[in-house]
C-alpha cells in the first residue's frame, strides 16, 4: 500500500544552520505518528515544511502522490493537510463557536458575492456551518464554552479550541505541534483520548510533536525521533524506548526538561 504522506529527503537550512538534514519517513493512512526530540531538534521546522509554511531547501513532501511542499499554506490546507501551531492557535476576539464556523469556510458552496447578496446557497451554508460547529463542539466536549470569547479561555481549552479549528476544516491529515503543552496530567489524558477519537471516528491521520513522553508513548502508533536536525530513529513506542541512540540523545542533552 502506498503511504498517505511521504517526507522525502527533506532538508532545511537557515543560513549556516541546518534545522532539518535529509529527513525521510512515510506516514500511513489513519495512523498517529509522533515526532519527538530535544528542543531545537527541528520538529516545528519539519511541520512547517509539510504544511508549506516555509519552503524546503532540498527534498519534497508528497501527499496522495502530489508534491505539497513549496506551495502556499492555504493550498495545502485545501488539499487536506492542516497544521496547528506550537504557539496559541486561536482567533482571540472570536467566540469558540465563531472560530469553528469561520474555519469551515473551505466547505462553502456559495461564492463570496453570493454571501454578499445573501443568496440561497449562502444561507444554506451558514445554517450548515452552524450545525456542524455545534456537532463538532459537542464531539470535543466543548459545548458549554461555545459562546465564550477565545481570549478568556484557560490554557487547556485553548489547546482544544486549536484542535477544533483544525478539525473544522475537515482535514485528512492534522499536524499538531505540542497540543498538550501547559496541560496538567488529567487534561493531557483527556486530550489523548480526544486525539485518538479524532482518528478513530473521523478518520483523520494525525501527526504530532510532543514533549510529554508518557502521552506520546500512549498515543502513538509510530514515532520519529529527531536530534540536531537529523532523524536518529523511527519505530513503534517500544522500539523507540529501547533504542540506544535515542536514549543517548536524551540523556546526553543538557536540556533535562524531557523526562524519559
Amino acid at each position: 500500500m502506498t503511504p498517505l504522506l511521504q517526507v522525502k529527503n527533506v532538508t532545511k537550512k537557515y543560513g549556516g544552520l541546518t534545522a532539518n538534514n535529509d529527513i525521510s519517513f512515510d506516514v500511513a493512512e489513519n495512523e498517529i505518528l509522533s515526532v519527538i526530540g530535544p528542543n531545537g531538534a527541528g520538529k516545528s521546522t519539519l511541520f512547517k515544511m509539510i504544511a508549506s509554511f516555509t519552503p524546503t531547501t532540498a527534498g519534497e513532501v508528497i501527499y496522495q502522490g502530489e508534491r505539497i511542499s513549496n506551495l502556499k499554506p492555504h493550498i495545502v490546507a485545501r488539499k487536506g493537510v492542516v497544521r496547528t501551531f506550537q504557539e496559541t492557535t486561536i482567533f482571540k476576539s472570536m467566540t469558540v463557536h465563531e472560530s469553528v464556523v469561520v474555519a469551515q469556510h473551505l466547505r462553502a458552496k456559495a461564492s463570496l458575492a453570493g454571501y454578499f447578496w445573501g443568496s440561497k446557497a449562502a444561507q444554506e451554508d451558514v445554517r450548515a456551518f452552524g450545525k456542524y460547529a455545534d456537532e463538532l463542539l459537542e464531539f470535543l466536549g466543548m459545548s458549554e464554552i461555545s459562546s465564550e470569547q477565545a481570549s478568556n479561555l484557560p490554557q487547556g481549552s485553548l489547546r482544544a479550541l486549536g484542535i477544533a479549528i483544525g478539525l473544522a476544516t475537515d482535514p485528512k491529515v492534522l499536524l499538531l505541534d505540542e497540543p498538550f503543552a501547559g496541560m496538567n496530567h488529567d487534561e493531557t489524558m483527556n486530550m489523548v483520548k480526544l486525539v485518538r477519537s479524532v482518528r478513530d471516528e473521523r478518520g483523520v491521520t494525525v501527526m504530532l510533536v510532543e514533549h510529554d513522553m508518557p502521552a506520546v508513548m500512549n498515543i502513538s502508533d509510530r514515532i520519529v525521533v529527531l536530534n540536531f536536525g537529523e532523524k536518529i530513529a523511527e519505530g513503534t513506542p517500544s522500539e523507540i524506548q529501547n533504542n540506544e541512540k535515542v536514549i543517548e540523545a536524551y540523556l546526553g542533552s543538557v536540556d533535562d526538561e524531557i523526562g524519559m
Binding site: A51, V82, F91, T169
Partner: peptide
C-alpha cells in the same frame, strides 16, 4: 486576528 492561522484553515490571505 491571526494571519498564520487563517492561512492554515485555507484562507488565501
Amino acid at each position: 486576528q491571526n494571519e498564520e492561522l487563517a492561512s492554515s484553515i485555507g484562507v488565501n490571505i
